[in-house]
């Protein structure tokens, strides 16, 4: 595979936290325009990986690059290229949705974000809420504002950490539509941590499975379904891989 096509490339990444290997010699390449579903049970190291890729955490050894920029050495460049939605983010509840988005746009270097904010709210089908206080928002609404702030500066890669956790079925459906739309219309590469297999099947183009800090499987969704064609569902495939 051509190296420039790899938006994310991770090599020999190891992270030790409290004498435990959270990540153990991880190697992973993700090419442009993929929707990558990162699977694994709780504590497998998914959030650690995302934290390193989003420059929040320095790895113990190994390196990771986003569009050729090293996440440790060129962290400022990397930050310009990524958008991130952490798990359980709540925003500033005394400020309105607009004020929250304006803040994140401005600190990302956008001078006059007004038009952009309205464009994005329209894009995610979330108009008319800009003057409401975030404190009055439901979990699903929070998550949508979360997506809006993550894409306001038009990043190349979007990192989502368990984006559907705690959402109701409607919220999940809405979020799924937005993710696919972002990928199709804005050509964003999406890196998504999840343990919901049903999600992966509906959204992702590629899946990877992490177990105890090691990547034990990576393939396209199509290939995966083909290879395990005698299994009834993705669940069974997952348990097969994990074993």
């Amino acid at each position: 595979m051509n190296k420039t096509q790899n938006i994310i490339s991770i090599s020999n990444l190891t992270h030790i936290y409290k004498n435990k290997k959270a990540l153990d010699d991880l190697n992973l390449e993700i090419s442009k325009n993929e929707i990558f579903g990162f699977l694994g049970h709780n504590g497998a190291g998914k959030t650690t990986t995302i934290s390193i890729l989003t420059t929040l955490l320095k790895p113990t050894s190994g390196n990771a690059k986003i569009c050729g920029f090293d996440v440790v050495k060129d962290s400022m460049e990397v930050k310009k290229l990524i958008g991130y939605l952490p798990e359980n983010v709540k925003f500033y509840d005394n400020l309105t949705a607009y004020e929250n988005l304006e803040y994140f746009a401005k600190i990302s270097g956008i001078k006059n974000p007004k038009e952009k904010i309205f464009d994005i709210l329209k894009f995610i089908d979330f108009e008319g809420i800009e003057n409401k206080k975030i404190g009055e928002f439901s979990k699903g609404m929070h998550q949508r504002i979360g997506i809006a702030q993550a894409i306001i500066h038009e990043p190349q890669v979007l990192f989502l950490d368990e984006p559907t956790s705690g959402l109701d079925p409607m919220g999940i459906k809405k979020l799924r539509e937005i993710i696919i739309k972002l990928n199709k219309e804005k050509q964003m590469t999406i890196f998504m941590n999840t343990h919901l297999l049903s999600e992966v099947a509906k959204v992702c183009t590629t899946i990877g499975v992490l177990n105890s800090g090691k990547l034990i499987y990576k393939n396209s969704l199509k290939e995966t379904l083909k290879r395990f064609n005698n299994e009834n569902s993705l669940e069974e495939i997952y348990f097969n891989i994990e074993q």
């Binding site: 989003t54 983010v89 709540k90 925003f91 500033y92 994140f104 600190i107 990302s108």
Partner: peptide
């Protein structure tokens, strides 16, 4: 507020240095 709401993680992934924050 930033710690409790997890917004610290958002701020630190933005192209703005910690000292400016």
């Amino acid at each position: 507020k930033e710690k409790g709401n997890n917004t610290l993680q958002l701020l630190f992934t933005r192209p703005i240095s910690k000292i400016k924050l």
